[in-house]
Structures are given as C-alpha cells and as structure tokens.
Amino acid sequence: MRRPRPRLAVGSPLQLLLLACSFALAAYAGVRLLAGDWFGVALWIVGAALLHDLVLLPLYAVLDRALVKAAGRRREWPLYVRVPAVLSLLLLLVWFPLISGRVAERYPSATGLSADGFLTRWLLLTAALFGGSALLLVLRLRRATKDRPPAAH
C-alpha cells in the first residue's frame, strides 16, 4: 500500500481569500502611507509593535512580579499598590508630552493656555490614588483584626 505523499499545508481556502483581500487593501493604503518618509513610517509601525511587545510589556510584567514577591505571604497587599500604580502610569503614558513638558513651548503659544500644572496635577492625582489605596488597606487590616475570633487552643 502506498503511503500518502506529505502535502504542503495550505489551510482554509476561505481564510486565504479573506487574507488576500485584506492584504490588497492594506497594500493600496500602505503605498500611500509610505509615499513620504517610508523608512520613518515603517520604523514607527514595526517599532511600535516591537517596543510594546519586547520592552513595555516585559517591563511591567517584571515590576509586577517583583511586587508580588516583595509582598511575600501578605497576598492581598500587591493589589493596593498595583491598582494606584497602574492608574497613575496609565495617565503618564497617555499624557506624557504634556506632563513631561515636551511641548511646553508650542502648547502655550498655540492655545493661549499655561503649560504649567500638568506635572503638578498628575503628581496630585498619583498621591490621591496611592493615599486612597493606603486608606483602604488600613481600614481592611483594622476590620480583619476586629473580626478575628479569639485564639482557640
């Protein structure tokens, strides 16, 4: 009996058709996207994916792991650092140009608004987030102490 010849796996024809259409549209727009500084644009697109997947994501994953490790057996504690840290860093990530003062020259001259205050407001928000979180943790610990039944032997 003859064994079936190994075939090159192609996959679903429908999927291939769909992907071909997608690439055709992407190429049509892509040619126009790359019409100017093609290297710069390609660098930004590929760089954005690489920077996110290979730098940003590992960085916050490692920080989170370190946090959990530092908390040790107090397993509910990381939450009280993680939540305010995530929220604060998210605000920093999105509004970095304003908070860092990168646009401190263009922004006031274009909008007539003051460029000062973004850093202060972000710091105050961060302080409020961590302060609120600390308060919740203290309340929780106090409740846990109160509710703990007397030690039985």
Binding site: A9, V10, G11, L19, A48, A49
Partner: peptide, 16 residues
C-alpha cells in the same frame, strides 16, 4: 500552514 503564516503576517499590521 500557508494560511496561518499569512494570518500572522496580518497580525503585524494589526498590532503595529
């Protein structure tokens, strides 16, 4: 498969 390879290539455009 070929379809899988193209799908992954498409993900570069999706994420990037």
């Amino acid at each position: 498969s070929l379809a899988h390879a193209l799908e992954r290539l498409s993900l570069v455009l999706l994420v990037g």
